[in-house]
Design a binder for these strands. Structure first.
Length: 256
DNA sequence: CGTTAGGCACTGGTTCCGTA
DNA sequence: TACGGAACCAGTGCCTAACG
């Protein structure tokens, strides 16, 4: 009992789904897209993790040992190893399916991880390249349960930004907008603008244009007070830059 | 008495190697 | 190639004995 400092309820704010049904729908989309990336054993592990993420849709604080035990029981002793489970976590994190948060016990010692499933993006699901090989948990700093409780009232900082946002983008924005939600919103605007073009751009190009646009926004914000809505302004810059880029790529005939 | 150091336990992370 | 498992690492608190 001393292992857990509280129930899963206190991680409520981590859930990105309004219902279990919604979570299942998103997970199915992830599976249809990414299940080939995972081995048979890894799929067993992932699906078991999903079943441990029901109380709070898409969030699990079960420890690896517990889940392995459950798998072993389910498969009559022919379960999977800790190595396989961890390989699954690495892959699923890299694919953007889930995010891992470290937690501590009340007394400060390391506790089980918090596994948070991400929503399936409405645009393109993140590619491995876009993830910047971010295999590690996206949380550099340790969190503890007390912290998490305290953060209920406040917003989560940039370390909680979803894995679908490329790291260089986070690294730039965090100095100006330290909140994860804001950074994610900027990235959402980016993907909306990109998808609107109907052109397929590679991830590094998108990132480059996004960063340029954001820098231009910051420049504007510092030099004038005319920026009323930072997202809208950013979106405007982005659209222009994307149009120019595509124009350069494909020539005038597209717009004639 | 209070403090400190050492060993233990618990967790996750990484790497490596043998095997089917 | 997927997998299991061992060996190592790190970080923390707990317990206890020794110390001043």
């Amino acid at each position: 009992m001393n292992l857990k400092t509280g129930s899963i309820d206190q991680f409520k704010e981590y859930s990105k789904f309004s219902s279990l049904k919604e979570f299942n729908t998103h997970f199915e989309m992830w599976m249809s897209k990414s299940k080939d990336e995972l081995s048979k054993g890894e799929l067993v592990a992932l699906k078991r993790l999903v079943r441990f993420s029901a109380k709070l849709p898409g969030v699990s604080n079960a420890k690896i040992g517990t889940m392995l035990k459950a798998i072993h029981e389910e498969y009559n002793g022919n379960g999977i190893s800790r190595s396989t489970f961890k390989r699954m976590i690495l892959k699923a994190t890299a694919l953007g399916i889930l995010t891992v948060h470290e937690t501590e016990r009340k007394n400060g010692s390391q506790s089980s991880n918090l596994y948070v499933f991400n929503r399936f993006p409405q645009s393109e699901p993140p590619k491995a390249k876009q993830m910047n090989h971010q295999y590690k948990a996206s949380i550099p700093s340790k969190t503890n349960n007390k912290d998490i409780k305290e953060r209920k009232e406040t917003c989560l900082d940039y370390t909680y930004t979803s894995n679908r946002v490329p790291k260089p983008f986070i690294d730039l924005l965090k100095y100006f907008f330290p909140m994860a939600k804001t950074i994610e919103e900027f990235w959402n605007m980016t993907m909306i603008a990109v998808n609107k073009t109907k052109f397929t751009l590679d991830s590094s190009t998108i990132l480059e244009i996004a960063i340029q646009s954001f820098k231009q926004l910051i420049g504007k914000m510092k030099s004038s007070t005319s920026v009323k809505n930072q997202f809208a302004y950013y979106y405007g810059i982005l659209n222009k830059k994307l149009a120019r880029h595509i124009h350069e790529l494909f020539g005038n005939w597209l717009y004639s």
